[in-house]
Design a protein around this nucleic acid. Structure first.
Lengths: 218, 218
DNA sequence: ATCTATTTTTAGATTTGTCTAAATTTAATT
DNA sequence: AATTAAATTTAGACAAATCTAAAAATAGAT
C-alpha cells in the first residue's frame, strides 16, 4: 500500500464513499488538489486491488476492504493528533500537517502503543471520533451550535471546519473543547448569536456557530 | 529533500564520507542493497544540489551542507529510537525499522519537542551518541570489550553490531547498557573471555566481545 | 429527441528512482 | 608498457504517479 493509495482511500472515505455512495473523480480531484485524470488512473489501480468499486463515468465507492484500510489510516491520523496535543503541547491548528505524515508510518505495534500511552482516547483534538482497532466508528450525534434553540446550552465537542484560520480564530477567542456555551439570543437579520461561555458574554457570527459542534445538556 | 536523498546522505555519512574521505559507489550500493549504477545517478543529483563532492570513478564525500543534513537525519533517527524504548516499551532490537520511517518526518518542532519530552538524551538505546540540534557530534571514546586488559572493568555503553540477532542475543543473556563487566580471563585458543557481570560469571566468545563497547573505569 | 455544456476518460509525455547490459575507466600484474 | 580484472559509468528501459490536450460519454435544456 503506497502513501498515495492511502491518501486516496482516506479522501474517498471523507467524501462519503464508505456508504456505497459513488464519489465522482472531479470531487476527489478537487479535494486532493490534483487533476481528474490522475484520479481516474488511481481509481483503476485501487479497483484492481479490490479496495474500491469503480464504474467508468460513474465514480468510485469503497469496498469493505477499502473502508477498513481508510479507517486504519484515519485512526492513526487522529491518534497522532492527540499525541501531538497532549504530549508535545502542539496547538490544535498545528497538528494536521504533521499528522498527515505520521499517519503513513507502517507499524501496528507503534500505533497501538501510542493509543495505550494516551489511555485510549475516543476523540481527537477537533472532537472527531477515533475509530477502534477493529474499525468500529462512533458517529458523532452532536448538533451544530447554530441549530440549537435559544436558552439551551451544550458543551463544545468539536469543529466542522478544521482549517487553520478557523482554529486560530477559536484559540484567539478562547473557545475550546469542553467549554459550556449557552445561546442567549439570535439576531434575525444576520443569524448571529449572543452567547454566554465560561461566565462571559460574547457575540459570534452565524458562520462560526455553523462550524461548532456542541453536545446539548438541556 | 526526498526520502531517497536523505537515505543516501545518511549512508554516506555512516561509511565515513563526512571526513572528506571518498566513498565508492560500490560500497554505498552494497550498504543500501541497491545497484552501483543507481548510486551513480544519485551521486550526480546530490552533487548538483551541493550536498556531496563527486568525482567520476573516484567516489563521493559529503560537503558541509551534506554533513549537516546527514546529522539532522541521524539525530531524528536516534531520538525516535529513544522515544520508542523509553516511552513505548519497545525492545532495542525492534526500534530500528520503525525509526527508519520516523526519521523522515518533516517537522522541526516535532523533533525538538520529542527531544524535550525525553529530557535531551545524549545516547540512543544502542549507545550511539545523538547529534545536537546544531550538528555537534560527540564521538564515542569507549573501547571494545575485546580490547581491554584482564582484570580491568567497564560499564557497557554501546554495541558495534546493532543487528537484530545480536541484540536478541544480548537480551537473552541479560547483557544490557549500564551493566558493569569485568574481564577475568582470556582464552588464548579462541580469544573467548571469562567475565563477571552483575555478580554472575559467564563465558563469552570473541565475536561478542568485539561488538560490545565499554567505558573503562579502572 | 436532439443538442450542448460539462464531466470523465484516454493517449501520450514527464519526473523520480530504479534496473540491466554494454561500454569505459582504473588498478593490478606481469 | 601492455594486458587483464575489477570497478564504475553510460545508455536505454521500466514502474509509479502525475500532467496536458484531445476524445468520449453523460446529463440538462429546450
Amino acid at each position: 500500500m503506497t502513501r498515495s493509495e492511502e491518501n486516496y482511500l482516506k479522501t474517498i472515505f471523507h467524501l462519503g464513499g464508505g456508504d456505497a455512495k459513488s464519489i465522482t473523480t472531479n470531487a476527489i480531484a478537487e479535494q486532493m488538489e490534483t487533476k481528474p485524470s490522475s484520479v481516474t488512473d488511481m481509481a483503476k489501480k485501487l479497483s484492481e486491488k479490490g479496495l474500491v468499486d469503480y464504474v467508468r463515468y460513474q465514480g468510485v465507492s469503497l469496498t469493505d476492504a477499502g473502508v477498513k484500510t481508510a479507517l486504519s489510516i484515519i485512526r492513526k491520523h487522529r491518534l497522532w493528533e492527540v499525541f501531538l496535543v497532549k504530549k508535545l503541547d502542539f496547538t490544535w491548528d498545528e497538528v494536521h500537517e504533521v499528522a498527515e505524515q505520521l499517519e503513513h508510518i507502517k507499524s501496528e505495534k507503534l500505533i497501538d502503543k501510542i493509543d495505550e500511552l494516551l489511555d485510549f482516547p475516543k476523540y481527537d483534538p477537533h472532537g472527531d471520533p477515533i475509530p477502534t482497532k477493529d474499525g468500529k466508528f462512533q458517529e458523532r450525534d452532536e448538533k451544530l451550535l447554530s441549530e440549537i434553540p435559544i436558552n439551551s446550552q451544550g458543551v463544545c465537542v468539536g469543529v466542522k471546519d478544521s482549517s487553520v484560520p478557523f482554529l486560530k480564530f477559536l484559540d484567539k477567542n478562547k473557545i475550546a473543547l469542553g467549554n459550556t456555551i449557552k445561546v442567549l439570543d439570535k439576531e434575525d437579520f444576520d443569524n448571529s448569536l449572543r452567547i454566554q461561555m465560561e461566565g462571559k458574554e460574547m457575540r459570534i457570527s452565524h458562520q462560526i456557530a455553523a462550524n461548532l459542534y456542541v453536545k446539548k445538556n438541556n
